[in-house]
Design a protein around this nucleic acid. Structure first.
Lengths: 255, 255
DNA sequence: TACGATACTTTATGCTGTAAGGAGTGGCAA
DNA sequence: TTGCCACTCCTTACAGCATAAAGTATCGTA
């Protein structure tokens, strides 16, 4: 896709009325729409409205919605940092920083998680993004064949956690109820409809402690229980994963 | 949601014409539609067509599309196995079996991955599913506080890999091109549009070897390159993660 | 000045979920 | 037996979606 790799400065003088818009402006507006209302709110009309023109006007600059989404995807990735400095033996700290930045990024732009990876976008933004991760990972000294699955696993963890956090934040807006109200109503309904709960799911009850029955535990009051739990999963899961990478390094006789 | 926990055998005799449909039949038909055409093809009219009735007839049995999706989600989870036998010290094998079954399940029903987790469904199917995983994990002897993030991380890995595999399988149907054609066209385009590729992304080139330039490596010919890579990520990523769990067990002075 | 390319609009088509209202069915009380 | 009415299912309608097609306004250039 030539649009992805186009040079924004190359402008040809052509007959006809001056363009009132630009691909850049359209992509930015589309990102703003998707950030505010999610992928579901991203319609050509909505983007056009933000730019004070009809939805059809966009088709002059962009072939269709699919291509616009590709452009949004690649452009948004550009806001991520590129360098994670540090010595080779500090790869773990760098990787944790990378993961936190990337997770926060996906939470900021949850619609990114709904872009199909069926045919990777292959734009400069995605390449830059993967190059950054590869740079950090190659400090471990592991071979490409070992690192490649680690790349995928890290991405799955980061994206999964970001998805959960984003879902938790959207929930009140979508369902119209706050978490504690919903939680209270559901647990009461559950006790009514499945009175033998503790007997049917003993291990689950053990695993979650009393969470399903009592109110959310104290913590950062600005975060929902779901989000707190998702962040715990992120930090602890990342630590477990990196422990596994260290095991692989030990097996390969690396420091 | 009482519909989720309803007893299918409890039938009340009521006036009026005999119902020609049932919630079960509708949910099954909806699952079949979504399996065949993805979440995008799941419309009330499409489900009605499969049952030889209008889309509006479904509203007699189900309050709306959202509730139907919840029912589909919970019912589909019922087809997963519940028991993963073995001694306590064979938890690793059991967990790998669980992960493979679950990944294959999500690949069979990719629409499951698009069901929002904003407000968990809380039906019997989901509880059974999580109880199964908890049963396998508690064999490690680790404490709930340690295991809970492992549950989340495992789910993220399995779902992420399944998503990638499902995307790879859908790609030809959606884009109309086979993987090798698409790959060939894109790499030619890439070389044209970014001639300095190897200089701009040196570490990425190192990480992927010559993948971006040569044809897919030999392997199971029935699988696409993308899917092969996704399966490698799954197996190797799972191994790394379980190595990390073993590290945690060693720290806790467990066998 | 006239041409023709470009920018943008309006209109139309066929999808979507679902609200509203109408027609037919059949168990039960009178 | 008759009438009632809860119930099932249908048709119609509406707003919103992507986008194809056609029409109009603008402006560099011959």
């Amino acid at each position: 896709m030539a649009l992805l790799w186009r040079d924004p400065n190359a402008e040809a003088v052509r007959p006809g009325p001056k363009p009132g818009l630009s691909v850049e402006a359209i992509v930015d507006a589309a990102i703003a729409v998707a950030d505010a209302g999610g992928m579901a709110a991203l319609s050509m009309r909505a983007v056009g409205e933000r730019l004070s023109c009809s939805g059809m006007a966009l088709y002059t600059y962009v072939p269709g919605k699919a291509e616009l989404i590709d452009l949004m995807y690649d452009r948004a990735l550009g806001e991520l940092p590129v360098h994670y400095p540090g010595e080779d033996d500090e790869w773990r700290e760098a990787l944790i920083s990378w993961a936190r930045d990337t997770c926060a990024f996906y939470v900021r732009h949850p619609w990114m998680l709904q872009v199909s990876q069926a045919r990777p976008v292959l734009g400069p933004g995605e390449h830059r993004f993967l190059e950054t991760l590869a740079c950090v990972l190659c400090r471990t000294g592991l071979r490409p064949a070992v690192l490649r699955p680690v790349v995928g696993t890290l991405l799955h963890l980061v994206r999964g956690c970001a998805q959960t956090i984003a879902d938790a934040r959207w929930a009140p807006a979508v369902t119209g109820t706050f978490e504690h109200e919903w939680w209270y109503a559901r647990s009461r309904l559950l006790a009514e409809v499945a009175p033998d709960y503790a007997a049917r799911y003993p291990v689950l009850v053990w695993l979650h402690g009393e969470d399903l029955e009592e109110s959310p535990p104290p913590g950062d009051a600005s975060l929902t229980y779901q989000e707190t739990e998702a962040r715990r999963t992120f930090e602890a899961g990342l630590a477990v994963l990196l422990d596994g990478v260290e095991t692989a390094m030990r097996r390969a006789d690396l420091p």
